[in-house]
Simulated assay, not measured.
Amino acid sequence: MKVFISADIEGTAGIAHWNEAERTHPDWAEFRALMTAEVVAACEGARAAGATEVVIKDAHESGRNLILDRLPDYTRIVRGWSGHPDEMMYGIDESFSAALYTGYHSKAGTEVNPLAHTSNLRISRLLLNGEVASEFTFNALCAAGYGVPSVFLSGDVGMCAEAKAMVPGLATVETLDGRGKASNSIAPTRARRLIREGVTAALSGDFARALPATADHYEVVIEFCTPTEAYRAAWYPGAKAHGPRAVAFEHKDFSEILRALLFLKV
């Protein structure tokens, strides 16, 4: 069994401030270690369930956060950003049995995580077919495009609830809840234990149907924080203005949505 892990940091147990997620700040060192430990726990859980190979995409900011020497020897690590439209899922393909997500966070416009956002802080909301979407929304659909089910996610309470509603049978571990600029988190040691046990249980069951619903046609709307961002993005071929701060793009092929997002949101 071959397993893919997309690893983020803003849903890591204990996190509460942007300083802890930014590599240029001293606080980041502690939280890159905690992020790494949660990824290792997921790897160990996958191994216990029979995984022979685990591929990890370091999917936060620079793509260079995980402490490599702590990763198990049966893993491969994808670092940095290739420019491929799969972005946080880069490296996944039809050969994988399942996708896992660690350190995931709620979408922009929600208040259950002080670090809630979608893709970057220039975006106030990102909508797919009229529904406000998270990074997980696009990543789970990306995996489904390769026929890979999304089986497990760890992250904040809001993200876990959304993921379970989107993907039938997906297992979650709630690491933290947030209000305003504060977070209320379980202990990192407990998070790692629950992640390890949760991944093992999820991969030991029947997860073939853990796929999100797909559509015949997709429209993505990006609401930016400023009108100047929307003006620039509207020059992408096929994109159109969608109000003073927003741009829209539609296509029947979801991979074209991902391709457009690669250029629209930069």
Rank of each mutant, 00 (worst) to 15 (best):
V39I: 08
H60E: 09
W28I: 03
N139W: 02
F136H: 13
A163N: 09
L100A: 07
W18C: 02
E219T: 14
D58N: 11
H217V: 10
E250M: 04
L128P: 13
V221P: 12
S82Y: 06
A215W: 11
D27A: 12
K57N: 01
L126N: 01
L261P: 03
S204N: 14
F263Y: 14
P149G: 04
A201I: 10
R245N: 15
C225Q: 06
T110F: 03
A33T: 06
S134K: 12
M166G: 11
K57A: 06
N19Y: 05
R259Y: 03
R245G: 14
V199Q: 08
P26K: 15
S183E: 08
D177M: 04
A49P: 02
K252E: 15
G180I: 01
A246P: 10
S183D: 02
G158Y: 04
F254C: 09
R245P: 05
E219L: 12
L121P: 01
A16F: 00
M89C: 09
G130E: 11
A241V: 15
S95I: 07
G238W: 11
L262K: 00
F4Q: 09
Y74E: 04
A99H: 03
A201E: 15
R76V: 04
L170F: 06
G50E: 02
S134W: 03
G14H: 02
Y90T: 07
